[in-house]
C-alpha cells in the first residue's frame, strides 16, 4: 500500500531559484535561510521517497486567466518547466506517475472534491523551487512528482478550511492506493508577503509563527480564518499559506514535528520550513 511518510512546507518565491542559479546560497543574506533546510534534506536522503506531491499555485505559466481551476492535479507521465517570460533556462523535466495520479483524481472526485485533471501541465517556479531547495539540481530527479495546483491568484480562491479538507481527502486517497510507494507531500508558498499596493512589503513575524504552530498542532486555528482575515495579516500573496493546510490535512492528526525553521526576510517574504513525520 502507498504510505504517506511525511510532509514538508517551504516558500517557493523566484528569488530562491535566482539565489541557487547565482551561487548565493552561502552569502550572508541567504545563508541562514538555506542552511535551515539541512535536517529536511537529510531526512529525505534517509527516507528515499518514491513520489512527491507538490501543492503550489501556478503564476501564469500553465494556466492563463481565461480558465482558472480551483484545484488541478497533474495526471501525466512527465512535467516540464518552461520560460516564465524572463528567459531562464528550464530545469530538467520531472517524471510523473500517471497511474497514481489518476487514482488520486478518482478518489478525490469520488469524495466530492471536483478536481481539474491535467494530462499536460507545465510547472513553474512554485513547483520547481521547492524541489530544487530540497534536492539540489539533477538531470534526472531521484523521485517521481505529482503537481497539485491551488488557485491562490485570482479570487475567489478556496477557503483555508476547504484546503484542509482537500488534504484530508488526499490522505485517504493516498492510503487507498495498492502499490507500495513512499509518498511525501510538500505544501509550498507563504508566509507573509504582499507584492503590490501601498502596503507592499509587509512581513508579520508574529502571525507567521502563529501559522507555523497552528499547522503543527492546531490546524483549526488557521482553517477557521476567512481569506480576508488571512490577507489582512499575511498580505495578498501571503494567503498562499492555505496550501500548507492541504499538506497538514493529508497527514495524521498526531503527525510529529521533526524540524521547524523560520527566516525573514527573503526578498519580500517571511519564510517557514516544517518537517512533519506521519505516525
Amino acid at each position: 500500500m502507498a504510505k504517506l511518510i511525511g510532509g514538508v512546507t517551504t516558500s517557493h518565491i523566484p528569488a530562491i531559484g535566482n539565489a541557487i542559479n547565482d551561487g548565493l546560497t552561502q552569502e550572508h543574506y541567504w545563508k541562514r535561510f538555506f542552511d535551515g533546510y539541512g535536517p529536511v534534506k537529510q531526512w529525505l536522503v534517509e527516507k528515499q521517497p518514491d513520489v512527491l506531491i507538490v501543492v503550489y499555485n501556478d503564476h501564469g505559466l500553465n494556466f492563463f486567466l481565461d480558465k482558472v481551476p480551483t484545484f488541478a492535479i497533474g495526471c501525466a507521465d512527465e512535467y516540464h518547466n518552461a520560460d516564465e517570460g524572463w528567459g531562464l533556462k528550464p530545469v530538467a523535466p520531472f517524471a510523473g506517475d500517471a497511474e497514481f495520479s489518476w487514482h488520486l483524481a478518482e478518489s478525490l472526485i469520488g469524495q466530492n472534491f471536483d478536481m481539474c485533471t491535467c494530462q499536460e501541465m507545465k510547472v513553474d517556479h512554485g513547483f520547481v523551487n521547492p524541489l530544487r531547495v530540497l534536492f539540489g539540481d539533477h538531470e534526472r530527479w531521484p523521485f517521481k512528482a505529482i503537481p497539485l495546483a491551488v488557485n491562490t491568484v485570482q479570487h475567489p480562491i478556496p477557503s483555508a478550511r476547504r484546503c484542509y479538507n482537500l488534504g484530508q481527502g488526499l490522505g485517504k486517497a493516498i492510503a487507498s492506493y495498492p502499490e507500495d510507494l513512499k509518498v511525501v507531500i510538500v505544501g509550498t508558498g507563504g508566509l507573509s508577503h504582499q507584492l503590490q499596493g501601498e502596503r507592499a512589503g509587509i512581513i508579520d513575524v508574529e502571525y507567521d509563527l502563529a501559522c507555523i504552530e497552528s499547522v503543527i498542532s492546531n490546524p483549526d486555528w488557521l482553517a477557521d480564518q476567512s481569506n480576508a482575515e488571512i490577507i489582512r495579516k499575511a498580505g495578498t500573496e501571503g494567503v498562499e499559506v492555505i496550501m500548507w493546510l492541504v499538506m497538514r490535512g493529508a497527514l495524521n492528526e498526531k503527525a510529529r514535528v521533526l524540524h521547524k525553521h523560520y527566516h525573514a526576510p527573503i526578498s519580500n517574504t517571511g519564510a517557514g520550513v516544517l518537517l512533519l513525520e506521519n505516525c
Binding site: 501564469g60 505559466l61 492563463f64 486567466l65 481565461d66 518552461a82 520560460d83 516564465e84 517570460g85 491568484v153 485570482q154 479570487h155 475567489p156 504582499q194 503590490q196 499596493g197 501601498e198 502596503r199 507592499a200 480576508a228 490577507i231 489582512r232 498580505g235 495578498t236
Partner: peptide, 26 residues
C-alpha cells in the same frame, strides 16, 4: 484593507487584455 488590491473578478475583468498580452511573453 488599506493599501491592498485583491486580484478578484472585477480587477481581472478590467485588466484582462493587459494580462493576456503579458502572458504571451512566456
Amino acid at each position: 484593507i488599506s493599501g491592498t488590491y485583491v486580484f478578484d473578478g472585477r480587477r481581472a475583468h478590467d485588466s484582462y487584455a493587459l494580462n493576456k498580452m503579458f502572458y504571451s511573453f512566456n
